[in-house]
């Protein structure tokens, strides 16, 4: 914990990411993943590296991480699973079996039903049991990457992730930047 925190703290001064090393380990494969992701970004395209059921289960987990809110779409509708599908064919190919096992485990924990047949709050309760696992850590991270990374990676459909936080992709800005600039 303290290790993590101090990395985060220092990052603040420098600009790198704590705990994201699995991405670093898989190096240049990101770009290849991006190309296939962009190709698969269409909603109706078949999944490439996962089954439709896995895609649905991942979508349900993604929506727990970054849920629909006040009428705005959640991670699944924003395309986080498209991003994941591409990632599993590239830099996340290694952890894919672990992720699939994690999804099966969610079904196990869902009692008589499977995870997908649970309502939103019951899914939350199941995920709370596994939130410290590497499985959840990876899906959590992939979800947020899939919502907020450049749309060319396959997620962030119609820049809906960016719209949700008020980010606009532009190269040139002019002051005033915020509501308090003039109070200097």
């Amino acid at each position: 914990m303290s290790k993590r925190s101090s990395r985060r703290t220092f990052l603040a001064g420098s600009g790198h990411l704590a705990g994201a090393g699995w991405l670093a380990l898989h190096g240049g494969a990101i770009m290849a993943a991006a190309r296939s992701a962009a190709a698969a970004a269409d909603l109706d395209e078949p999944w490439v590296n996962i089954s439709a059921t896995d895609a649905a289960r991942l979508g349900a987990v993604a929506d727990q991480v970054y849920p629909p809110l006040d009428g705005a779409p959640g991670a699944e509708a924003i395309g986080a699973v498209r991003f994941m599908d591409a990632a599993f064919g590239g830099f996340m190919a290694g952890p894919l079996p672990m992720v699939l096992a994690g999804l099966d485990d969610l079904d196990q924990r869902s009692g008589a039903d499977d995870f997908l047949s649970l309502g939103f709050d019951d899914r939350t309760a199941v995920l709370k049991q596994v939130e410290a696992t590497p499985f959840f850590g990876i899906v959590h991270m992939l979800t947020l990457c899939g919502v907020f990374a450049l749309p060319s990676y396959g997620g962030n459909r119609d820049q809906q992730g960016w719209k949700a936080i008020g980010f606009e992709s532009r190269h040139v800005w002019q002051p005033p930047f915020g509501a308090y600039d003039a109070s200097a």
Binding site: L144, F148, A149, F167
Partner: peptide, 16 residues
């Protein structure tokens, strides 16, 4: 955006 979502640590627990 990505780094913001991954690292914002301001009290929302759990982080999802």
């Amino acid at each position: 955006p990505v780094m913001h979502a991954l690292t914002l640590s301001g009290g929302a627990v759990p982080r999802w």
